[in-house]
Design a binder for these strands. Structure first.
Lengths: 203, 203
DNA sequence: AAAAAAATACCTATAAATAGGTATTTTTTA
DNA sequence: TAAAAAATACCTATTTATAGGTATTTTTTT
C-alpha cells in the first residue's frame, strides 16, 4: 500500500486525482493540502510514503516544501505535479530531491506510472517534457520573438495590437502564435494564457 | 523623501511603476524584490519607509511577508498591489497590517495618491474596489451560477462546452459570460481568464 | 403577495482566434 | 559558405468570443 499526500491549491484537481487513484487498491490518499505549509504539517503528522505536490502554491511553494520534507524525511518520495513543461522547475525540483515530474495535462495513467515507478525507487519524468541534453543549461523552446509575443499575449493584447507594437503584420503575429501553440503543445487561448501567466510563477 | 521597496514578480510591472515614480522628487525606489523572501531581506537591509507589494508572489506571499515586516518594523508602511478586487485579500492584508490596497489596473495616479496618503499616516483603499458595508462578511459580486461558469471558463472550456456540462443553452452561457465581464469590469478573455485563474491564488 | 434578483434563451453583428496551407527573406549556426 | 533556424507574410475557412438588444421563467427576498 502506497500512502500518499496530495498538495495542490486547486481543490477541483485534488478531487479529480483522488477519484482516479481510488480505483487503485495499492494506493491510498491519506491527506490533502492546499498550500505548502499544510503539506509540511501533514507530512510530519502522517509520515506518508509519497507526496504529489504542485509547484506553485500559496504560503510556501512546492520546491521549498520539497526541500524541507527531504531534510526531515529523506525516505518520503516526492512527485512534482505542474501545469507546464518548465525546465527550471524540473531542475529545481530535482535539486530539492523530487523523484518525478508529471504535467497536469498528461493523462492520469502517466501519473499512475510515475507513482509506481517512483515507489520502486526509480525516477520518472514526464514524456511530454521536451528534454534537451542534460548538460544544456536551458533548452530554448520558444524563440526570442515568440517569447516576446507570448509576453504581449499575456498582457491581454490582441494579434492586431501586437502587430502594431512590433511594427510587423498581423499575419506574422498569427503565424508566431500558431507556432507557440504547437511548441508548447496546447490548443486554445485559455491554455496559452495560462502558460503566459503561470510561467512567471510556476518557476 | 519617501524611501520605497517594491515587491512584484513581474519585472515589467516593477519597471513601469519605477518609471512613473521617478518623476516624483519626494519618492525614491530604493529596492526591488521579485518574491516575498527577497522582500523581507530587503526590508531588513534597507529599512525603507514604505513597501509596495504584490499579494501573490513565489516563495512567500505578500500577506505573510507583510506580517513578518510589521512584526519586525511596525513603522514600515505597506501598500498592497493586486490584480483584482478581492475582499478576502483586502481583509487579510488589513489584518497583516497593510495601510493601503491598490489594484494593478488602476491608474498610477491612484498609486501615487495611495503613497502620499499612507505616508501621512492615513489609510488608502482603492476606489475601484466594490465595497459593501464593512460588516458584511463577503460581498457576493458574482451569483452562484456565474461563479460556476467562471470556474469552467478557467478550466479552458468554451461556452458551448460549458452549456453541455450544465445542460443549458449556449445562449445562456454567453449571457452569464457577458454579465461576469460587466460585473468584474473587464473586457476580453485575457482579463477574464486572469481573474478566473488568479482569484484562486491571489487570495 | 409583490418586488427584486437570478437564470434562462434568442436575435444580430463584429472581432478575434484557430487551423490548415504556402512562401520569401533574414539571421544564425555548423 | 552552405545549411538550419527564425522571422516575415499572405490565403482560406471555421470556431469562439464580444457587444448590443430583448424577453420569459424561476427563485429569492422583502
Amino acid at each position: 500500500m502506497i500512502r500518499i499526500v496530495i498538495a495542490e491549491d486547486h481543490q477541483a484537481l485534488i478531487d479529480g486525482v483522488k477519484l482516479s487513484l481510488e480505483y487503485e487498491k495499492e494506493i491510498k490518499v491519506i491527506g490533502e493540502a492546499n498550500d505548502g505549509e499544510m503539506l509540511i504539517d501533514l507530512v510530519v503528522k502522517l509520515k506518508p510514503d509519497m507526496v504529489i505536490t504542485d509547484i506553485r502554491m500559496p504560503k510556501c511553494d512546492g520546491i521549498t516544501a520539497t526541500q524541507k520534507i527531504k531534510e526531515l524525511y529523506p525516505e518520503v518520495k516526492v512527485i512534482a505535479f505542474s501545469m507546464f513543461d518548465q525546465r527550471e522547475a524540473i531542475t529545481q525540483m530535482k535539486a530539492a530531491g523530487a523523484s518525478g515530474y508529471v504535467m497536469k495535462n498528461s493523462s492520469l495513467k502517466t501519473l499512475l506510472s510515475a507513482i509506481f515507478s517512483v515507489n520502486e525507487g526509480k525516477h520518472f519524468f514526464d514524456d511530454k517534457i521536451i528534454i534537451g541534453d542534460e548538460n544544456s543549461e536551458e533548452k530554448i523552446i520558444l524563440s526570442r520573438r515568440e517569447k516576446e509575443i507570448l509576453g504581449l499575449i499575456g498582457q491581454g493584447k490582441t494579434s492586431y495590437e501586437i502587430a502594431e507594437v512590433l511594427f510587423i503584420s498581423k499575419s506574422t503575429v498569427d503565424t508566431h502564435r500558431r507556432n507557440i501553440l504547437r511548441k508548447i503543445n496546447v490548443h486554445g487561448k485559455t491554455d496559452l494564457l495560462r502558460f503566459a501567466i503561470e510561467r512567471k510563477y510556476d518557476f
